[in-house]
Structures are given as C-alpha cells and as structure tokens.
C-alpha cells in the first residue's frame, strides 16, 4: 500500500487546495439546484456530503468533473480552472476519479480490461504497464481473483470495489464518490466501506456523497450538510452529529439516525 507517485497535475498545483469552488450556481431548466456554493477542499482532506434527496449534493460533485455543467461561479481543480476548454476538462477528469452509485462498469469488458482501458488510451501506458497497475489495485481492493471475469458475473459489492480499482488505476489525486453504497445489498456495504476507509487512511483527497454516518465518523475531516441547493452547515463529524446547529440538520439527523 505504498503511496502512489504524485500525478503531474497535482505536482503542478503543489501548495494549492485540491478543489476550490466559489459562488457556484446551477439550474436544471427553471429549477435552481445549486445556490452560491463556496467550498474549499484541502489536499488530503476527506469530506462527507450529506443531505436529503434532491438537495443538490450529487449535482455538486458531478460539477467537479464536468458531468454536469455549471452556469455561474468558478471551480478550480488542482489549480486548473474548469471552463469550456476541452483540454482542461480532460486533464481534470484524468486526475479526478469517480465512483458511481450504480458502479457503471463496462459490461462488455473483463474486470481487468475495465481497469486498463483508460490508462492505455488516456495515459498512453503500455498494455503490460497498465495491467501491472490494474492487478496491483485489484489486489488492494481484494478482488484480484476476479480479474478475468465479466462484471455481470460479480456481486454488487465486488463490482463496486472493481469500480474503485478502475478509478485508482488512473492514479488520481482526488476521488469523488456518489452514493457508492446506496445500490448495494446491506451485507455488501461493509466491504465497500472498508475499501474506502483504507483509501482515506492512505491520504487520498476524498469527497463522498453518502448517508453512511459510521463512515463519516471514522474518516471524515468535515461533514457538509446540504439542503435545497445550499450548504447549510459544515463541521467536524463529532460536532455535527452530537451538536447540529441548524434546524434542518437536526431534522435530517433525527430521521436517518432513527432508522
């Protein structure tokens, strides 16, 4: 589990925060989904974003790698401004890994090919080099024996761990998690969370949209609570869970902790 070599983009941005978001606004048609978001994520910082559904938390992290386009405000990732410049977008994307709720593995490719596709075609690695890296990360997520299988032959938890390995193969400096355990059967949540906790302990910069409060307590440096497109409250997990300040936070916590 040695630290991966620093990627080019993050070296260039030494000393700057990993992500800087200023005055971010986004609309879906008439619907104002993100309202004046300001957020700075430090290098190596682990942030958990929570909030009721429809609060804009997924949209927020999807703006960071341009899966959603924002209409107002600035997003700077590793010192690179996210604009319409396609080159900037590609650079940012190859330095920001993302894990989705529904895994989104490529069903026509084996687990190994899922992991080597982008390193070969985006980072121009040789096949041998990409496969060595892929096997290393598949071992880290404890799934190396599944390398020759197709995603459809794996359980949900295994697929999500492959998805994490696939993202790590690009050697990203930032990882985004969009409700990574929401689509899993309960008995598989732990294996994915354990993988994420390992990653957090190695110092990866992480932004996780999740309702797993145990995960937030274990690794988060900061919990951000969003509601109706705004960041309503942010605090350390201890302070946020034991003493929420805002009424909406209190209500949300009482709902999810009662379950």
């Amino acid at each position: 589990m040695s630290a991966a070599p620093q990627s080019t983009a993050s070296r260039a941005a030494e000393g700057r925060p990993a992500i800087e978001i200023r005055g971010l606004n986004k609309w879906f048609g008439e619907f104002h989904v993100l309202k004046n978001i300001d957020l700075t994520v430090g290098r190596g910082e682990r942030i958990v974003v929570c909030g009721p559904s429809g609060s804009g938390k997924s949209t927020l992290i999807r703006c960071i790698n341009r899966l959603e386009q924002h209409q107002k405000g600035d997003i700077v990732v590793n010192g690179i401004a996210l604009t319409d410049d396609l080159k900037n977008i590609d650079t940012i994307r190859s330095d920001v890994g993302m894990v989705f709720q529904h895994f989104n593995l490529f069903p026509h490719l084996t687990v190994l090919d899922n992991c080597t596709l982008a390193p070969i075609w985006v980072k121009k690695q040789s096949k041998a080099q990409a496969e060595a890296t892929a096997l290393k990360f598949l071992e880290r997520v404890r799934i190396i024996e599944q390398a020759p299988k197709y995603p459809g032959q794996l359980s949900g938890g295994q697929q999500q761990r492959v998805a994490i390995a696939r993202a790590l193969c690009m050697n990203p400096s930032i990882m985004l998690f969009d409700e990574p355990t929401s689509a899993l059967d309960p008995e598989m949540v732990k294996e994915v969370l354990d993988t994420m906790i390992d990653l957090a302990r190695e110092g990866m910069t992480m932004l996780c949209v999740t309702h797993e409060m145990g995960f937030a307590r274990a690794v988060a440096d900061r919990v951000i609570f969003m509601d109706r497109g705004e960041i309503v409250e942010q605090n350390t997990p201890e302070a946020f869970f034991s003493n929420p300040q805002n009424d909406r936070s209190k209500q949300f916590l009482s709902q999810i902790l009662d379950r």
Binding site: N65, R66, L67, L86, D90, T91, R93, S94, V96, G97, M98, F100, H102, N104, L105, F106, P107, H108, L117, A118, W121, V122, A163, R166, A167, M170
Partner: peptide
Amino acid sequence: KGQYEAAEALGLPYWKMMAFVILPQ
C-alpha cells in the same frame, strides 16, 4: 447513460469513448 458518464469520468475523449465503450455495446 451511466456508461457514457463512466467513460467521461475516466477522461476518455469522445472518439475513444465511442470506439471502446459505447459502440461495442
């Protein structure tokens, strides 16, 4: 749609995304 998003999130440019991820499916 998730297949397009996963390919984009990995930084695959349009033609590579089409050639290796979308069109085979």
